[in-house]
Amino acid sequence: MTTLWILLTGMLVAASCSLVGCFLVLRKMAMIGDAISHSVLPGIVIAFLVSGSRDSLPMLLGAAAIGLVTVFLIQLFHQGGVQSDAAIGVVFTALFSVGIVLVSAYTQHIDLDLDCVLYGEIAYVSWNTIEIAGIALGPKAVWGVGIALLLGVLCISLFYKQFKLCAFDPALAAAIGIPVALFHYLLMSLVSITTVASFESVGAILVVGMLVVPPSTAYLLTERLGRMIVYSIALGCVSAVAGYYAASLLDASIAGCMIGVAGALFVLALLFSPSHGVVWRRWRQRRLAEAHRLEAH
């Protein structure tokens, strides 16, 4: 049963992250996930200090709120003339520092382990269950991430055309009257919710990895957005399952192994993708050169 829940959680995280990750990769905002997953720390700590409990809901709300603040600040500085990657760097490191200072100032005697908040352990998901009216409903993580996935699927399938246009040609989107800023913030809210819902249970590194690595792999395999999303979700799920078994084989961190497998798949795609792979491209070039030489004879 434990195995099943871990696999299910892993696949849900992979699917929801890959879904929104595709748009991040296309819009050249891949590092946003990394930024959000670090900068939510003060939100979690403040929610913890205000509510006084380790209950998930206030922490999730605090984290999601700070996630949106992060995105807003990044956008603000970017419009003020700071390069976008530098804006990301300034904002998330500052918020993360605030979080660490808050942790060490106020929560020294309270059980809020920094490692646990930041590097939630997917191996423990099946012990952290919820019950409503006495009926066991399974692990909390599955519900949280499942709801995030549902929300993502709902938003993106409803506004697929708008998201697509904003990803590829924001200027055209603005010209034909699509509220580009609104969709930017909608996408960022989805990223924020997905990140926050996932990382508490599986750890920041798995979330950040799943946001970027499977979509990039899929980006090397196809030219169509619809297929890219499907491929990246599939690749994410495969990495989650294979990573889990690799971890039990090696007796090592599950999240680390999942990312490792996703990375290996990326390297494979980088080298051997039929359309963009380095090896095939070189092979085609050599064949073309040979054909050219034969013609010249």
């Binding site: 891949a30 590194i205 946001l211 690595v213 090397l220 961190s253 990312i259 996703a262 990326f266 963009h276």
Partner: peptide, 27 residues
């Protein structure tokens, strides 16, 4: 060598290296 942009390349290298690092650390 690919059409992956710099931001995605950074994020990929960051997470994959760190993931491998965590695996080694647990080992």
């Amino acid at each position: 060598h690919s059409r992956i942009k710099q931001d995605a390349a950074l994020a990929i290298v960051l997470t994959v290296f760190f993931g491998v690092g965590i695996v080694l650390l647990t080992q």
